[in-house]
């Protein structure tokens, strides 16, 4: 077992634990903190089904962002959608046998071209941060670094199209991690750069603004029904303030 294999093997275990336990803990926190008042924004659905539809529209189309600013919507939506396609393509490294739809040519090809779209979207978002005075004003170093991190992940991933990497060995490595039967990880520079950046992303996820992903589902302005007059909505801590019978 090479040092590289041991180092990355352990790192991926640690990062996976931080990502999943961290996220699970955040979701637990969000789910257990009460929303004591009804604060949905219009057009607020009257039913839970309506809320589900509203959230799906937000997640799939970024509806509110579309109403707010077309450029940010375009870059942001392209990036996220491309990220999803790239993730689909990557599933072949983690499934054995490969799920049938993942091996479809169209999924694999889309995942590849999505890499370029991701970079395009991210550069657009970076450009807004640099050139729009209002967005520049609110940007912290971490906001730029986050974009650079994901841009580098995408670029290093795309680079492996041109720089030789033994992709089969990479798959053996990850499947080995998953089934606790470790295999050697090739120590190609571009691959290791790609994996290192992904590790960083996994670790910072539960501690950063990337929490907007679970956050949206727990946002009371978006996930509440407009039923304040129909049924009484009251938090446990507020119930304790009730003095009358």
């Amino acid at each position: 077992m090479s040092f590289v294999t041991i180092f990355y093997g352990i790192s991926f275990y640690v990062a996976t634990l931080i990502l999943f336990i961290g996220l699970a803990y955040r979701v637990y926190e969000y789910a257990t903190i009460p929303a004591p008042l009804k604060i949905p924004t219009p057009p607020a659905p009257k039913t839970k089904k309506g809320v589900a539809v509203r959230l799906i529209r937000e997640v799939v189309f970024f509806e509110s962002l579309f109403a707010a600013t077309k450029w940010t919507w375009l870059f942001g939506w392209l990036f996220h959608f491309a990220l999803l396609l790239a993730a689909f393509r990557h599933l072949r490294y983690f499934t054995d046998p490969v799920w049938f739809w993942v091996s479809w040519e169209v999924v694999q090809a889309a995942g590849h071209y999505a890499g370029y779209v991701m970079v395009f979207g991210l550069l657009g978002l970076l450009g807004r941060r640099i050139f729009v005075d209002r967005v520049r004003y609110i940007s912290n170093p971490s906001d730029y670094l986050m974009l650079l991190l994901i841009i580098l992940i995408a670029l290093s991933g795309l680079a492996m199209k041109w720089v030789h990497t033994d992709i089969y060995a990479v798959k053996q490595f990850f499947i080995g991690l998953m089934y606790f039967q470790w295999a050697e990880l090739p120590s190609d520079f571009v691959l290791l750069l790609h994996l290192t950046l992904v590790l960083v992303l996994m670790i910072i996820f539960p501690y950063s603004k990337l929490l907007h992903a679970p956050g949206l589902f727990f946002s009371p302005t978006r996930n509440q029904t407009d039923t304040a007059r129909d049924s009484r909505h009251i938090a446990d801590w507020a119930k304790k303030m009730e003095t009358r019978e």
Partner: peptide, 24 residues
């Protein structure tokens, strides 16, 4: 308040600093 209002807690964590609100 962060333990009493989910809105406050989620909104402190979730802002992407995207700038969509800046001119609203």
């Amino acid at each position: 308040l962060l333990k009493k209002y989910r809105s406050l807690r989620v909104y402190m964590d979730s802002c992407i600093q995207c700038g969509a609100c800046t001119d609203k």
